[in-house]
């Protein structure tokens, strides 16, 4: 990693860690009646330690890419929450006997390679309608998935909306 990239990732990690600290301990900092500098300084020290240890894991790219990816990721996550609610209704309908179940195990390959993209896609599969990830092979991007019925399996193997969305977010399409 180059020098400017390192400074950028350390800065962002520090800001996020400190924000998290202030949010979770704001009761202690503000509501006692006076501005408690000691707790804030303690937070800054902890945030510094966290920054020095994990900044390379947290952000490992150049600045422009990070912001673009974050914007795309936010749009993806709203779509994903909608899909999760649809998934719960789908499974509830199958539980109550309104739709049949026909379990099967499917395998397919994707173009995703980086750890973050693979993990996001695996979690998304598990959260969306009727599919759970069993195995992931990072070298070939191959997924083994248990599907509860034919339609959710087809959504992954034939339709491939989600692969394209995750590939678009992490810039790893084909």
């Amino acid at each position: 990693m180059r020098g400017s990239g390192k400074a950028f990732s350390m800065l962002i990690t520090f800001c996020v860690a400190l924000m998290f600290w202030v949010l979770l301990s704001a009761w202690n900092i503000y509501l006692i009646g006076h501005y408690d500098l000691f707790r804030l300084i303690r937070g800054i020290i902890v945030a510094l330690i966290v920054t020095i240890t994990v900044h390379e894991l947290f952000i490992s790219e150049q600045a422009e890419k990070v912001f673009l990816k974050f914007q795309r990721w936010l749009r993806y996550i709203t779509w994903e929450i909608w899909q999760i609610i649809l998934a719960a209704i789908d499974v509830a309908a199958r539980v109550l006997g309104l739709r049949p179940i026909d379990p099967r195990i499917i395998e397919f390959e994707t173009t995703l390679r980086s750890d973050r993209a693979l993990t996001t896609f695996a979690d998304s599969i598990t959260l969306t309608p009727g599919t759970i990830t069993i195995y992931v092979e990072p070298e070939t991007g191959k997924y083994t998935v248990h599907a509860i019925s034919k339609e959710p399996a087809d959504a992954l193997t034939v339709d491939q909306t989600m692969q394209r969305k995750v590939g678009y977010v992490f810039m790893e399409e084909g």
């Binding site: 999760i84 609610i85 998934a87 719960a88 499974v91 509830a92 539980v95 959260l127 759970i132």
Partner: peptide, 11 residues
Amino acid sequence: LHATGKCDTVG
């Protein structure tokens, strides 16, 4: 696992 994994998350 399908039933518990998904309905519990959303619930």
